Each structure stands twice: as structure tokens, then as C-alpha cells.
Computed example of a mutant assay.
Amino acid sequence: MDRTNETYFADVVSNELLTPHMRRIVFAVDGWTSSGIADEWVRLFFPSPGGEDAALPVSQGKGWSFPDGVPREGRWYSVRAIDGARLTIDIVVHESGVAAAWAATAEPGSRIAITGPDGRYGADVAVDWELIAADMTGLPAALRILAELPAGRRAIAVLEVQDAADEQPVNSAADVEVRWLHNPQHGHAPSLLPAAIRDLRWLDGSPYVWMSAEAAATRDIRSFARRDKKVPNGCAHVVGYWSMRRNTAR
């Protein structure tokens, strides 16, 4: 069930540079509960340029209103991990954007607003193996999915980062084959994921395909999975998290 019309205050507990191009922020959020979906996401509402205090927005269909009348920009982010009332969210480090700018200087005690979760991960029917693919924006969700796979499950993970220093440990009880792709122009040049996935030797049996990355890359693989590999709609969740053409995050 989509709970993204719920809103909560989120207070920064810690903020650290995880890799050269990924920052990890842990929030304390009272009353927030997980959807239980491995790729669940939330919307974060960042401070306005005027520096007003955080305020809980009210959903207005596709938009949001704030009790003090001052709008705050919102961005969608995956929940990397949950520990009681604490949520871990990883934010890509780059040269522009309201989220990256806020994350670069947010200190413990800083407060923003956050929504309830929603997610898509999960096949409609039993499958034999999984293909999990992501660029830097989808990496937090991909790593959480892999971490929650059960023993006995087979999976291939194709993960695109800027360079080797941005690789992270892949912890999973499943039998996972991991392929890292290094794209020094990540965010400024086409993704390496489509070519890598097209060249991949797919395992036998029925697959489940999950991918989150730049919009053009996901369109390519969505078409490839459904037309070339005949993956049913209910066994493929391929989502564009951002657009290089518009340079906007999901």
C-alpha cells in the first residue's frame, strides 16, 4: 500500500562520506514504519533557501502544501536500511542539486520532513533467479535487495559506479554473481548498463528483473527484457530514477 501521503519529522543522527561519491545519512524518525518492500522509497523535503524550520507538508494530489506557506523542494530516495526508529539513506555526491547541497553540510540535529514508504520489488510468480541492476542512484536499493535475498536464491548483480573506490561490499545469503561497471563519466555520459546486460549470459529458468538507473538506460533494458527475453510484466520492475536529458532525480 502506498503510504507516501504520510509525513514525519526526520532528525539527522549522523552524516558520513561512505565512498568518494556517496554520502550516508542516518535519521531518527518517530512513528515511521517500513512497508517491508526491499526497494522502498520515501520523499525527503529539504530546507527552503530562507532557512525556515522544517514543517510537515500536506499532500495535495500531485503536489504538497506547507502550513507556513513556504514551499520546500522534495526528492525521492531509497531506504538503505532500517534499525528501529532509525533510517539510513544514501545520497549520491555530485556538483549540483538541492539534496546533494543539503547533504554536504547537514549536521546531527538537523531536521527535515519525510514521507511514508512505497516500493515495487517482488515478482508476481515464482522465479528461478534474479537480475538486479543499478547505477549510483539505484545502488542503495540494489544492495538492500541483495542483502535480503534468502539462502538458495541465485542472482546476478550488475552495478555501475564512477570508479573502483565507489564499490561497496555486497552482503547476501544468496548465491550472487556481482559485476561492477566503472563509468568515470557517470551522470554526464550514457550508462554502461544496457550494453553489459545485453551481453550477459542469462541463467536457465525464469528470471525476475529489477533495475533502477537513468531513464534512457531503463527504457532500453525494459524493452530488451520484455521483447527479447520474454520476461512477463509481473516479473520485471525496471524504473528510471533520473533523466540525464533533464538532469533531474527521481
Rank of each mutant, 00 (worst) to 15 (best):
D204G: 14
G122M: 10
G74W: 11
R120Y: 11
V26T: 13
D68T: 09
R75C: 03
I114Y: 03
T248L: 15
P184Q: 03
V26F: 03
I145Q: 05
T88N: 08
V13A: 05
R3A: 12
R24E: 01
R144Y: 09
Q185N: 11
L193S: 05
I89W: 04
F46V: 06
A155V: 04
A126F: 03
H182N: 15
A100D: 05
S223N: 15
E52S: 09
T248M: 12
L87N: 07
V239K: 03
Y208R: 08
D68M: 01
A151C: 04
A151Q: 13
N233T: 13
D175R: 00
E52I: 00
T88P: 02
D53T: 12
L192S: 05
Y8Q: 04
E40W: 10
A249V: 14
K229N: 09
G69K: 06
A249C: 08
R3M: 10
H186G: 00
G240C: 12
W102S: 08
H94Y: 04
G234W: 10
D204W: 07
R198T: 05
V161D: 00
F224D: 02
T137A: 15
A38Q: 13
W76C: 14
W129I: 03
A126I: 00
T105I: 14
R250H: 14
I132H: 06
E130D: 07
A54N: 06
F224W: 15
D228E: 15
D39A: 11
G31I: 01
E160C: 01
A99T: 15
A113Y: 08
S96R: 15
E177I: 14
L139R: 07
P117D: 07
